[in-house]
């Protein structure tokens, strides 16, 4: 079974982060999708959402601090709720109460992983109950990986507000970003997931690109072991 579609890279329209959810809608039997990135200190930012309900479901979970989204982050595995009304909501009781009042009848959350680092979550919903097939789950997992790569590329290149890179990045995360992530994980004695978030957070605070900061880490002119302000 081979499904390759050529011609996606027709540079006519530069890719934008707000299209990150598009592949999920096109290739999976779902009605809505949102993509959010983990930022420092357990916060998150929604980078792409298909509609108001997708945004609402995301916001609800963020406000309550629980739900399939957080469960997927915690387990680093897909969380599938094929029937919202019949589901056991004991893991997320408050969200369980709230979600039954929405039009979402099935929820699926997939962690976005870049290598060993979890950088975000893709949340999908359906308007009718129903399972995702094994193949759909495999496809969604792969799409979440692709979205993670692209989201990280945006993050890596997003320099100090000069907008040079924000419209045209596709797959350009340089290897030193990943190498620096591994080095920071050791320097801070933490996971690569946290290390990547710290790398992004530091870049944001000092107003430089992740790419630049990663270069300094690899060159050993910047060490996260020391206080970095």
């Amino acid at each position: 079974m081979v499904t390759i579609e050529a011609g996606h890279v027709d540079g006519a329209e530069p890719p934008r982060s707000n299209a990150l959810h598009a592949g999920f809608l096109a290739r999976l039997p779902v009605d809505g999708a949102s993509v959010s990135m983990v930022t420092v200190a357990g916060n998150q930012s929604t980078v792409s959402s298909s509609d108001a309900l997708a945004t609402r479901l995301e916001q609800l979970q963020y406000d309550l601090g629980e739900g399939p989204h957080y469960r997927a982050l915690e387990l680093q595995k897909p969380v599938l709720v094929p029937d919202v009304e019949a589901a056991d909501h004991s893991v997320w009781p408050m969200f369980g109460h709230a979600v039954v009042d929405t039009d979402a009848k099935a929820l699926f959350s997939f962690p976005m992983r870049i290598g060993a680092a979890t950088v975000g979550v893709v949340d999908l919903y359906r308007l009718s109950p129903g399972l995702l097939s094994d193949r759909d789950v495999a496809q969604a997992t792969a799409l979440a990986g692709a979205a993670a790569g692209r989201a990280a590329a945006y993050a890596a290149a997003d320099a100090d507000g000069d907008g040079r890179h924000d419209s045209a990045l596709v797959g350009g995360t340089r290897r030193h970003v990943h190498q620096a992530t591994g080095m920071i994980a050791v320097q801070l004695d933490t996971s690569v997931t946290d290390a990547f978030a710290r790398l992004r957070g530091y870049a944001y605070v000092v107003g430089r690109s992740v790419d630049d900061i990663a270069r300094d880490v690899v060159a050993q002119t910047l060490d996260f072991t020391e206080p970095t302000g």
């Binding site: 079974m1 499904t3 920071i184 050791v186």
Partner: peptide, 29 residues
Amino acid sequence: DTTLVTDQLQRALDSRVIIEQAKGVIAAQ
């Protein structure tokens, strides 16, 4: 049955990243 070629290619892309992250971990250790 459940695996498309594109999924396999995505796993390869993931592997590439994991190898770079692991190199960073080893270098720092």
